[in-house]
């Protein structure tokens, strides 16, 4: 219990720090972001709207930093993150709400598939460490783990979508067709296959190698040979003893990866023009959409912190040694 309370305290503190930095950063940037915005939107928005925007975002110069800081917290707690400049008159929260399901669907699923497959193959390649299968799996994993993501994704996009036309060039679904619900689902799946594959291929190798290493070191522990001396079946030893204990370190990495899912896979979404958070983030950066940018960063940091906390929490359930160490 004490361990969890401490982790919770840590979560609150880091959350506060991350949000405060998120507030401070635009104020530290060279030039006045408010001026940049105003210059950018001059003539496109009416002056009142512009004033409202920079007010809402706390960038107007006539208030003290501290007052702005308090207003910032007030806005966060009321869920009002202002308007997006790029997608005006859409609110930032609306833009995020549109993007998040795409990212969670694609990157979240990709991460889960990559972790599951990689970990299973890691278990197999460690358990039968001298089999032909292990001899193939390990160098293959190393290879895919080390090729640059953008290179692989562009290559696949060029070959499979552009040349062979098996897959669409980008997007989340076919925006021009008018479809029934099942056709729409089909279209979403069809659009997701290629980006999903690139995510799984590049992320899987890392999980495989990590799990294999953990598993090899657990297999050399005394309690594994003792488990055999106890007459337990190979199956039980492999999963309940070896894999169960070897997965603990991988598990932390997995929770972190899930946290980073919210940030989207920037490269994936940009390469495949996928309408998720990563793509939106990219758009907001190139168009200097500070409110949107700030909101996305806020989201990413909170997701990572929360994932971290959940990882600690679940780890404490899975490994009885942790609670002691934390006291």
């Amino acid at each position: 219990m004490r361990y969890l309370l401490r982790r919770l305290g840590f979560l609150l503190f880091t959350g506060w720090a991350a949000l405060s930095i998120n507030f401070i950063l635009p104020h530290l940037m060279p030039g006045d972001p408010a001026q940049v915005m105003i210059a950018k939107f001059q003539g496109r928005l009416n002056p009142q709207a512009l004033k409202a925007l920079s007010d809402a975002f706390g960038l107007t110069a006539d208030k003290s930093l501290f007052v702005k800081y308090l207003e910032y917290w007030q806005r966060i707690f009321s869920g009002d993150l202002g308007f997006s400049l790029t997608y005006y008159p859409a609110k930032v929260t609306e833009v995020l709400a549109d993007a998040i399901p795409w990212t969670i669907g694609l990157v979240g699923l990709g991460t889960i598939i990559a972790f599951t497959l990689g970990t299973l193959l890691g278990i197999i390649s460690a358990w039968k460490r001298n089999s032909p299968l292990a001899d193939i799996l390990v160098p293959t994993a190393l290879f895919f783990n080390s090729i640059p993501y953008f290179w692989l994704s562009l290559l696949m996009l060029y070959l499979l979508a552009y040349q062979l036309e098996w897959f669409p060039l980008g997007g989340g679904f076919d925006v021009f067709a008018i479809m029934g619900i099942w056709d729409k689902v089909g279209s979403i799946v069809y659009h997701a296959i290629l980006p999903l594959t690139t995510i799984v291929i590049t992320a899987m190798g890392g999980w495989l190698l990590t799990m294999r290493n953990n598993m090899m070191s657990v297999l050399a522990d005394d309690y594994i040979i003792f488990a055999r001396a106890k007459g337990l079946s190979d199956r039980r030893i492999k999963y309940k003893y070896a894999a169960r204990n070897a997965i603990l370190p991988s598990f932390t990495g997995f929770s972190m990866a899930l946290g980073f899912v919210i940030g989207g896979s920037l490269l994936t979404e940009v390469v495949f023009s996928y309408p998720g958070l990563g793509y939106i983030l990219y758009q907001s950066v190139i168009s200097l959409d500070y409110p949107l940018m700030q909101a996305i960063f806020l989201f990413i940091s909170l997701a990572v912190l929360l994932a971290n906390f959940m990882a600690d929490f679940i780890y404490a359930i899975l490994d009885p040694r942790v609670k002691e160490g934390g006291e």
Binding site: Y223, F226, A229, N245, P320, R321
Partner: peptide, 14 residues
Amino acid sequence: SMIFQEPNSSLNPV
């Protein structure tokens, strides 16, 4: 059945 030299490490830690 068997008893090993290092009792602590012969038991599954979790």
